[in-house]
Design a protein around this nucleic acid. Structure first.
Length: 1201
RNA sequence: GGAAAUAUAGCUCAAUGGUCAGAGCAGCACCCUUAUACGGUGUCGGUUAAAGGUUCAAUCCCUUUUAUUUCCA
C-alpha cells in the first residue's frame, strides 16, 4: 500500500526525512556509493561562527547544496569538507566588547594569553546553532571533520605557503600610508577611524602655494605671452607637508586658465595657473578691468587678466622648482616636481591642482607610485629611508628652519602653546613662503579632520612598515587565468573582478592585532649589510629546530631585581667596559617604563649567548612545562627566538610582531584544509582545484580574490603545487566555476539589519514551511546573482502552487493505485503502444529531463526550477492527469489503465529526481513513498539514485505540437462557451475548424477525442476556404520581409494590410502577388494568413488558429445536459456523505417533468457515472436532499448498497 | 570619486532587433472538478526609469542622465 496523507505538511515531512537520513547515513552513502576516481570538487567558504546565521545563509548554502547534489546524481563523488573561519577583527571586537576593554588594554589589563583564550572560545560560540541550521535546511556538508583556521596544522600550511612566496621574493616589507597617532605611536585601522567622535571640526592654516614653472620644451607653450614669473597654484590644508611636496596633481579633463596678476604679499607681477571654475574664488570681479600700470602694492583691488585656457592633460609632465628645497637629490630632480594626473582632483575646493606629498596621504602615495614619482626622504642613523617628519611628529634635522618642531600645534604641551612667542609650525611656514613670493593666499579654514580616539589629538597620515605580497608580479597571469574561470554571472568575472585585477596593487598582509595567524618572519636588525637578516619559517619542524622559547618575563624580572654588578656577573662578562654597564642600566630603566621590547633586549645585550642560554628552553620543553599542547599563536610565538650562526657568531632573530590578513587564512584553504604538504597529499591532489564554489558577491575581492591570488602565485613558485597542477591538468586556478550570489533583502528591498529588525529568522521559517519551500522559493524566484526581495508570502505561494499540486498528483495516484493494487509488477507496456496522451507526457518528460540537466550543468538553478514547476503545473497536473482521470475509474484492468498507471508513476518518480537537488526533503519522501512500494530501483534514497536518462527516441515533437493544438482548441472553445453563457456540462453538437494547411486536419484528428471530451462537444467538422465564406486576415511577416524590402517596409506593410479578400485569394492560388506596382513580389512565406471569421458562427482566434462553435441545443443535447447536471449533484452528495469512490449506491429522485425524461433517456450513462445500481423516479418522494437544476427543485436520496 | 548590477502591470518575475510586451500573485466576475478553490474563462492593470542615437524597424544594440544596491576609495 502506498502511504496516504491527510494533507501536505512540509514542516513535518522535513523532520521525518531528516531523521531518516540520519538513521541511515544517507549523506555518507551519497559519497561512498560514488567512485573515488570520479571526484567533483567543491570548496566550502568558511563561515565565521561568532554570529548568528541569517536567512541569507540559507540562500547561499542552498546554491552550494544544489550543485553538489546534482553532481552526485550524475555519478560524481562530491566530498564537501566543512570549515570555520576563526580569526579576525570581528572576533576580537566581540571579545573586547564582552570583556569591556579596548585594544590598548591588551597586554596591560589583560594578558595576550588571556585575550586569545577568550577569542578562541568566542569564535566557536554559535557553532551549535550553525550546525543546527545546516542540518535543518538540508545542507549536506561534512561537519564531523571540518578545517578550522586556528589549528596548528592549518597555520603550519599557511606558513609553508608564505615561505614559498618568500623564497621567490614575493613577500616583502614596505611602506603604506596609514592613519597614525604620534602620541600613542601606533597606526589606526580604518575601523578605528570610523568610531564616533573621531572626526572633529578644526581650524587650520591653509596655503595656496606658488610653484614656479621651469621653462623647457614641455612648458614652452605655457609661456606664450607671459612676461612675469609663471606659477602653478596649489592649495593645502597641511602646510607642514609642503617640504615633502614631490608632485602636483591635475584632473586631465579639467579646464585650467592662465592669469596675469600681482602677488598680494610681495606685490610682484606674476602669472598663475589654476582651474577655470575657481578663478572667481581668488579674483575680485572689479580687478578684471583694473589697470596694471596704476597698481601699487597694498591696493585693495588687484588687477588681473585671463590669458589662455587649456586642459589638464596638456599640463602633464611640466616640471617646476621645488617649493621648499631642504632635501633633494638627482632622482628627485629628474622624476619628481612635475605635474601628474590623478582621478581624485576636483574643482570643489582649492585651485583644482593638488599639492602631492607622497608619504603623507594615501591618495598621494598611490598617485605618485602610479606615475613613478619618488618621495622626498632622508636616511636615518641606520641608513633607512624615512620621511621628513619623524614618528614623534617632529621635523627631522634636515628641515633646518623647523628642525625638531612639531608639525601639529596640538602635539605641543599646553604650557608650550601658552608661551607668548609661540607660533604653530604651519604659521611659520606661511610666513616664510609669503616673504619668498611663494604664497598666493593664506587663510584659516575650518574643516573636519580625524582625531585619535585614544589621545584626542589630530592624526597624521604617515607611512608605516607593512608586509606585502607582491601580487603585482603575477598580475598578468592572474588576469589571463581569470578568463578561464566560468563566472556566474559573467559580469562579476569580467567587470568587478576583472577590473580589480587590472588595477591590482600589492597585497598588504600586515595586521597589528592579537588573534590571528602570526607572520612567520624573524628578523635580525643587528647588522645592516651583507647579512641574511630574515628567516621565514615554513614549518613547525623548522621552528623547533632553529628556535628556542625565551622566558622574557623571567629575564626581565631578573634584570629588574638584581644589581647591575650581579647581572654583569650573571652574563659571565669577564671584563666589563663602560658601555656594558650603561646598557644594563638602560635595560632596567626601560623595564621600569614597561617599554622594553624583546628585540632590543636580545639584540643589544652584551653576551647575548649567555642570556639566551640561561633563559630559554626548547619549544617542546616549554609547552610540556606549561602542560599544554603546542600553540603557534601569540603570545607564545612572540617569545620564540631563532638563532643562526654567521661567521662563527650566533645571531638572534626576533619575530616581526604582525599578524597576517585573515583573508589569507581562507584563501589558503585548498591547501591548509588538508595540512598540505605535510599530510594528505593524495587528498589534496584529488581535490584541486575546485570544480565549483559559491559565495556572496561581497566576496569578490575577499575570498574569490585570495583563493585566486594564492593559487596563481603557488602555481609559479611552489614545486609541489606545480607538480599537482601538471598532473591534474590545471593551469593554475583554484576554482573553475563560481557563482557569486546577490543579497537577500527584506520584502521592501531594504537591507536586513538588526537595527531595523527586519531580518528573517531562518529557524522560524523552516519550522513553519520546512526547508524545501523556502529553498524552492529562493531559487525559482530570481537568479541567484540578482538580489532577492524575501517575502514570506512568496514561500506560501510556492507551497500551494508547486508542492500542493505535486502532492495532489501523488494523492491522486495513490487513491487509485491502492484500490487497483498497482505496484508496477506488470510488464512494462511499450511506450509506442501507449495512448496518445501517455506518449505525449513521456515526450515532454524527456524534453524536461534534457532541459533541466542542461540548466543544472550550466549553473542555472532558477531556470531548472521554473522548468520543473511549469511541467508539473501546466502539463502534468492540469492536462495529463485531468484528461486521464476517467482511465483510472474504469473497473476493468485493461492495458489502457495499466499504461496510465505506468506513465503517471514514471512521471512522478522522474520529477522526484529532477527536483531533488533543490527540494531534497519532499523529493526523497516522494521517491521513497513510490519506490518503497514498487521496489523498482534499489536505492534507499533519491539522493543515492542517478539522474534520469534522456531518451531521445521518446521525444515526439509532432505529438507535442498537436497536443498544444488540442489545448489551444479546447481553450478557445471554453472561451466561446463562457462568452455565450453555455456551461461545459451542456453538450454541444460540433465545432468548425477552417483548414489552412494540409497537415492541420491530420493533426487535429489524432487528438480529436481529447478535445471532444474536454470541451463536451460531439464532433469536429472542417471547412476549406473553397467554401468561400471564411473571412481571412493577412499580416506581414516582418522578419522575412525586412531583408527583402528594407526601407520600403512601411509602404509594403501598408499595402499588405489593405489587401482585399480577393487579393488574399489570389496570393493563395498563385503563391505570389505583386505590390507597389509590382516592385516587390510577395510570396506566401512573407505573410501570415489567418481565418479571422466564419460569418454566422461564434468565432474565436488565437494566433493562426480559429474555432467556430455551433451553439444549437437540440432537445436531445438538452436532456443530456440535464443528465450531466444530475450526475454532478449526485456526485456532490456522494462526497458530502463520505462515500468511498468505489461504493455502489441506489438512487431515488422525485419525478419532475423537466428531469424525468432526461433521466430515462440517459439512464445507463448516469448509473455508470455515479456507480448506481438503478435510479428510481419516485413522485411520492418527500425526503432527501434538495437540489436545483435549471431552477427546478428536486429531491434526491442516495444509499450505499 | 571609481567599478559593477538592476530598473518591464499594484507585487514577484518572463520575453524578443519585427507591429497585440507575457506569466503568476493580488483584486473583480463567472465557471469546472468523486485529486485539489488546484484550475479554467474573462476583467482590471504598461509612454518597457528618462533623453538622445544606430536601424526600414529598438523594450532589446550604443551614449548620456536619474534612482536603488553592492564593492572599492
Amino acid at each position: 500500500m502506498y502511504k496516504e496523507y491527510k494533507q501536505l505538511n512540509l514542516s513535518q515531512t522535513g523532520k521525518e526525512i531528516l531523521e531518516f537520513w540520519k538513521q541511515n547515513n544517507i549523506f555518507e552513502k551519497s559519497i561512498s556509493s560514488r567512485p573515488a576516481n570520479n571526484p567533483y570538487t567543491f570548496y566550502e567558504g568558511p563561515p565565521s561562527a561568532n554570529g548568528m546565521p541569517g536567512i541569507h545563509h540559507v540562500m547561499a548554502r542552498s546554491i552550494k547544496d544544489i550543485f553538489c547534489r546534482y553532481k552526485t546524481l550524475k555519478g560524481y563523488q562530491v566530498k564537501r569538507k566543512g570549515g570555520w573561519d576563526t580569526h579576525g577583527l570581528p572576533i576580537e571586537l566581540a571579545v573586547e566588547k564582552a570583556l569591556g576593554i579596548t585594544k590598548d588594554d591588551i597586554g596591560k589589563k589583560i594578558t595576550v594569553k588571556e585575550y586569545n583564550d577568550a577569542c578562541r572560545k568566542e569564535v566557536m560560540r554559535y557553532t551549535d546553532v550553525w550546525n543546527d541550521l545546516t542540518e535543518k535546511m538540508g545542507y549536506w556538508v561534512d561537519l564531523n571533520d571540518p578545517y578550522i583556521t586556528y589549528k596548528n596544522e592549518y597555520i603550519e600550511s599557511l606558513w609553508w605557503i608564505l615561505k614559498q612566496l618568500y623564497d621567490k621574493d614575493l613577500l616583502y616589507k614596505g611602506y603604506t600610508v596609514q592613519p597614525y597617532s604620534p602620541k600613542s605611536g601606533t597606526g589606526l585601522s580604518s575601523h578605528e577611524l570610523n568610531q564616533p567622535g573621531t572626526y572633529k571640526m578644526v581650524k587650520d592654516t591653509t596655503i595656496v602655494a606658488q610653484f614656479k614653472v621651469k621653462r623647457d620644451q614641455d612648458s614652452a607653450f605655457l609661456f606664450e605671452g607671459v612676461t612675469a614669473d609663471l606659477f602653478i597654484l596649489a592649495w593645502t590644508t597641511t602646510p607642514w607637508t609642503l617640504p615633502s611636496n614631490c608632485a602636483l596633481a591635475v584632473g586631465e579633463n579639467i579646464t585650467y586658465v592662465k592669469v596675469n596678476t600681482f602677488n598680494p604679499y610681495t606685490f610682484e607681477p606674476i602669472c598663475v595657473v589654476l582651474a577655470k571654475d575657481l578663478v572667481k574664488k581668488y579674483f575680485k570681479a572689479e580687478g578684471e578691468s583694473a589697470s596694471f600700470e596704476d597698481y601699487k602694492g597694498g591696493d585693495k583691488v588687484i588687477p588681473w587678466t585671463l590669458l589662455a585656457e587649456f586642459k589638464g592633460s596638456q599640463l602633464l609632465g611640466i616640471h617646476y622648482e621645488q617649493l621648499m628645497p631642504y632635501v633633494t637629490n638627482a632622482d628627485l630632480e629628474k622624476n619628481a616636481f612635475r605635474v601628474i594626473p590623478a582621478d581624485f582632483v576636483t574643482t570643489e575646493d582649492g585651485t583644482g591642482i593638488v599639492h602631492t606629498a607622497s608619504v603623507f596621504g594615501a591618495d598621494d602615495f598611490r598617485a605618485c607610485k602610479e606615475n613613478d614619482v619618488p618621495s622626498v626622504m632622508v636616511k636615518d642613523e641606520n641608513g633607512k629611508e624615512v620621511p621628513l617628519v619623524n614618528k614623534q611628529g617632529r621635523f627631522v634635522d634636515e628641515v633646518t628652519d623647523f628642525a625638531g618642531y612639531y608639525v601639529k600645534e596640538e602635539y605641543y604641551s599646553d604650557a608650550e602653546r601658552a608661551e607668548k612667542d609661540f607660533k604653530p609650525t604651519d604659521v611659520l611656514i606661511s610666513i616664510k613662503l609669503k616673504t619668498e613670493n611663494k604664497a598666493f593666499d593664506v587663510k584659516k579654514y575650518e574643516h573636519s579632520y580625524p582625531h585619535s580616539w585614544r589621545s584626542d589629538e589630530p592624526i597624521l597620515y604617515y607611512p608605516l612598515d607593512s608586509w606585502f605580497i607582491r601580487t603585482t608580479a603575477v598580475k598578468d597571469k592572474m588576469v589571463a587565468l581569470n578568463k578561464t574561470i566560468n563566472w556566474k554571472p559573467e559580469s562579476t568575472g569580467t567587470g568587478r573582478f576583472g577590473n580589480w585585477l587590472e588595477n591590482l596593487v600589492d597585497w598588504n598582509l600586515s595586521r597589528s592585532r592579537y588573534w590571528g595567524t602570526p607572520l612567520p618572519i624573524w628578523r635580525c636588525d643587528y647588522f645592516s649589510k651583507g647579512f641574511q637578516r630574515e628567516i621565514c619559517v615554513g614549518s613547525i619542524e623548522e621552528l623547533k629546530e632553529k628556535g628556542v622559547y625565551f622566558y622574557f618575563d623571567e629575564a626581565k624580572a631578573f634584570f629588574q631585581k638584581e644589581s647591575v654588578e650581579d647581572i654583569i656577573a650573571f652574563l659571565e662578562i669577564d671584563n666589563p667596559d663602560q658601555t656594558d654597564y650603561l646598557d644594563i642600566e638602560e635595560y632596567k630603566m626601560l623595564i621600569d617604563k614597561g617599554i622594553l621590547e624583546l628585540k632590543h633586549f636580545i639584540q643589544n645585550c652584551p653576551k647575548r649567548d649567555v642570556l639566551v642560554k640561561k633563559y630559554s628552553c626548547t619549544i617542546e620543553e616549554y609547552f610540556k612545562n606549561e602542560k599544554m599542547g603546542m600553540d603557534l599563536h601569540r603570545p607564545y610565538v612572540d617569545n620564540i627566538i631563532l638563532s643562526k650562526e654567521y661567521d662563527g657568531v650566533l645571531q638572534y632573530y626576533v619575530r616581526e610582531p604582525d599578524l597576517i590578513d585573515v583573508w589569507f587564512d581562507s584563501g589558503a584553504m585548498p591547501y591548509a584544509q588538508w595540512h598540505f604538504p605535510f599530510e594528505n597529499k593524495e587528498e589534496f591532489k584529488n581535490a584541486y582545484p575546485a570544480d565549483f564554489i559559491a559565495e556572496g558577491v561581497d566576496q569578490t575581492r575577499g575570498w574569490f580574490f585570495t583563493l585566486h591570488a594564492i593559487a596563481v602565485m603557488l602555481s609559479e613558485c611552489s614545486d609541489e603545487v606545480k607538480a599537482v597542477n601538471e598532473e591534474v591538468g590545471n593551469g593554475g586556478v583554484a576554482f573553475k566555476n563560481v557563482i557569486s550570489n546577490g543579497l537577500v533583502l527584506d520584502k521592501n528591498g531594504n537591507k536586513m539589519s538588526k537595527r531595523l529588525g527586519n531580518g528573517v529568522d531562518p529557524f522560524e521559517t523552516i519550522e513553519q514551511f520546512g526547508a524545501d519551500a523556502p529553498r524552492w522559493y529562493m531559487i525559482s524566484n530570481a537568479s541567484p546573482w540578482d538580489n532577492l526581495k524575501f517575502n514570506t508570502e512568496g514561500i506560501d505561494e510556492v507551497r500551494r502552487k508547486f508542492f500542493g499540486t505535486l502532492y495532489n498528483t501523488y494523492s491522486f495516484f495513490v487513491l487509485y493505485a491502492n484500490i487497483d493494487k498497482f505496484s508496477y509488477s506488470e510488464a512494462e507496456i511499450e511506450i509506442s503502444k501507449r495512448p496518445e496522451i501517455d506518449r505525449w507526457i513521456i515526450s515532454l518528460l524527456n524534453t524536461l529531463t534534457l532541459e533541466v540537466d542542461g540548466f543544472y550543468a550550466d549553473f542555472e538553478p532558477t531556470k531548472a526550477a521554473r522548468a520543473i514547476q511549469e511541467f508539473v503545473d501546466a502539463h502534468f497536473s492540469n492536462w495529463f492527469i485531468r484528461l486521464s482521470r476517467r482511465r483510472f475509474w474504469r473497473s476493468d484492468n485493461s492495458d489502457d489503465k495499466l499504461s496510465a498507471y505506468q506513465t503517471l508513476y514514471t512521471c512522478l518518480i522522474t520529477i522526484s529526481k529532477l527536483m531533488s537537488p533543490i527540494a531534497p526533503f519532499f523529493a526523497d519522501r516522494l521517491y521513497n513513498d513510490l519506490n518503497g512500494v514498487t521496489g523498482k530501483e534499489e536505492f534507499e534514497s533519491v539522493h543515492l539514485a542517478y539522474f534520469p536518462t534522456y531518451h531521445k527516441e521518446l521525444v515526439d515533437t509532432d505529438l507535442e505540437e498537436r497536443m498544444k493544438l488540442a489545448q489551444d482548441v479546447s481553450s478557445l472553445v471554453l472561451s466561446l462557451r463562457k462568452k455565450i453563457g453555455i456551461n461545459v456540462r451542456q453538450p454541444l453538437s460540433k465545432i468548425l475548424l477552417p483548414i489552412l494547411d494540409k497537415d492541420f486536419k491530420v493533426h487535429v484528428e489524432q487528438v480529436k477525442e481529447l478535445i471532444l471530451s474536454e470541451t463536451n462537444i460531439k464532433d469536429i467538422e472542417y471547412i476549406t476556404d473553397t467554401a468561400g465564406f471564411i473571412k481571412k486576415k493577412i499580416k506581414p511577416n516582418f522578419k522575412a520581409l525586412g531583408q527583402k524590402v528594407g526601407k520600403d517596409m512601411k509602404a509594403v506593410a501598408e499595402a499588405i494590410s489593405n489587401f482585399t479578400q480577393e487579393d488574399i485569394a489570389e496570393l493563395d492560388a498563385n503563391g505570389s502577388i505583386g505590390v507597389l506596382d509590382n516592385k516587390y513580389l510577395i510570396v506566401d512565406t512573407d505573410v501570415d494568413i489567418i481565418a479571422e471569421d466564419v460569418p454566422g458562427w461564434q468565432v474565436a482566434n488565437m494566433g493562426k488558429l480559429t474555432v467556430a462553435l455551433d451553439v444549437t441545443i437540440t432537445n436531445e443535447l438538452k436532456q443530456e445536459g440535464i443528465a450531466r447536471e444530475l450526475i454532478n449533484r449526485i456526485q456532490n452528495l456522494r462526497k458530502e456523505k463520505g462515500l468511498e469512490v468505489t461504493d455502489k449506491i441506489n438512487v431515488s429522485i422525485s419525478d419532475h417533468p423537466y428531469i424525468g425524461e432526461a433521466v430515462k433517456n440517459n439512464l445507463s450513462y448516469i448509473c455508470a457515472e455515479v456507480l448506481a445500481a438503478g435510479i428510481v423516479l419516485d413522485s411520492e418522494l418527500n425526503e432527501g436532499d434538495l437540489v436545483t437544476i435549471d431552477e427546478n427543485e428536486i429531491l434526491i436520496v442516495i444509499s450505499k448498497i
